[in-house]
């Protein structure tokens, strides 16, 4: 009797462990194999080379630059999305005529594939025939066309803005979930005590949706860090690698230049970084999961 009790949890956990092993541990093992060997462009493994693939990465200024840029990209998109999503969620949480429609409109970008969004923006940002330039000229904001995608200094900020735009729906959904769990009587009591809208937000809303913001932060970080379509469809990381982030760099090294060993090394580096975020996520959900 006592022994079944000891074994039971492990038996119950076993199926999910096997699943995890199949989808996580086995690929990571394969990646480690590729990253530590010389690999031809068709993924056929040749000689063992130890850390040479990682060393080659550190020697590549484009890798280092992509690493930093990935940081800017992730912080910019995730931070921007959260800052924009809180007010949107607050408005959508109010009871007003046509709220359902407004919610649908805010959620719509989620329904369109990222690649489609990015391609539409690529057209919109085209220098000679793009909608954005026509609109700005019409409004008198600019007096000659801006070549948005010709240089990183204009292309990359635009990509971050588009990243924010497509991240908002998911973030709003999470925050709305948090807002709907706050009982109305808290606000009524606070109003009786003379708290204004800002004080109510600052002392009631914000602390109570904080766990939800944390979740949004971690999940978006993981997602945005890995996001390929926006940058690829608009600039392919160019001109001259100046808008590459790790995942577009990975794709180029792996599939365009055929260096699968180095590409696997990049994957492992990315996996390491993301693992840290995943661990944070697990902590957040287990510590405060009861509230969700």
């Amino acid at each position: 009797m006592a022994s079944t009790r000891v074994i039971a949890p492990y038996v119950l956990v076993l199926p999910s462990f096997v699943l995890a092993a199949l989808i996580v541990i086995w690929p990571v093992n394969e990646l480690a194999q590729l990253a530590s060997h010389s690999v031809n462009r068709f993924g056929q493994i040749r000689d063992f080379v130890g850390m040479a693939n990682f060393a080659a990465l550190l020697d590549d200024p484009n890798f280092i630059a992509s690493l930093w840029r990935t940081g800017i990209w992730t912080i910019g998109v995730v931070g921007g999305a959260i800052i924009c999503s809180v007010p949107v969620a607050l408005v959508l949480n109010e009871d007003f005529y046509g709220r359902d429609l407004a919610r649908v409109i805010v959620m719509l970008p989620w329904a369109v594939s990222l690649t489609m969004t990015a391609i539409v923006w690529r057209w919109a940002l085209s220098g000679e025939s793009g909608m954005l330039n026509s609109a700005l000229l019409e409004l008198g904001v600019i007096d000659q066309n801006i070549q948005w995608l010709a240089e990183a200094s204009t292309a990359f900020p635009m990509q971050i803005l588009i990243g924010i735009l497509v991240t908002i729906p998911f973030t709003v959904t999470i925050i709305l979930g948090g807002l709907s769990s706050i009982p109305d009587d808290l606000y009524e009591a606070a109003a009786l005590e003379g708290a204004g809208r800002w004080e109510q937000f600052r002392h009631i809303t914000l602390p109570l949706i904080a766990p939800f913001l944390n979740i949004a932060l971690v999940l978006n970080t993981i997602y945005v860090f890995n996001s390929f379509p926006i940058i690829w469809a608009m600039t392919q990381g160019g001109p001259a690698n100046s808008t590459d982030i790790l995942v577009t760099y990975l794709y180029k090294v792996g599939f365009r230049l055929g260096k699968l060993g180095e590409a696997s090394a990049v994957s492992l580096v990315m996996f390491g970084i993301l693992l840290v975020f995943t661990l944070i996520y697990v902590r957040l959900t287990t510590a405060k999961g009861a509230k969700i």
């Binding site: 690929p27 990646l31 999940l219 993981i222 390929f228 996996f271 995943t278 999961g289 969700i292």
Partner: peptide
């Protein structure tokens, strides 16, 4: 429901990462 979607998303992002490196 919420929890379920959240987990599903982590699951996907991990899987995507793996696939990106290993190939199909």
């Amino acid at each position: 429901m919420q929890v379920k979607t959240l987990h599903k998303n982590t699951f996907f992002s991990l899987k995507r990462l793996m696939l990106a490196g290993v190939g199909a």
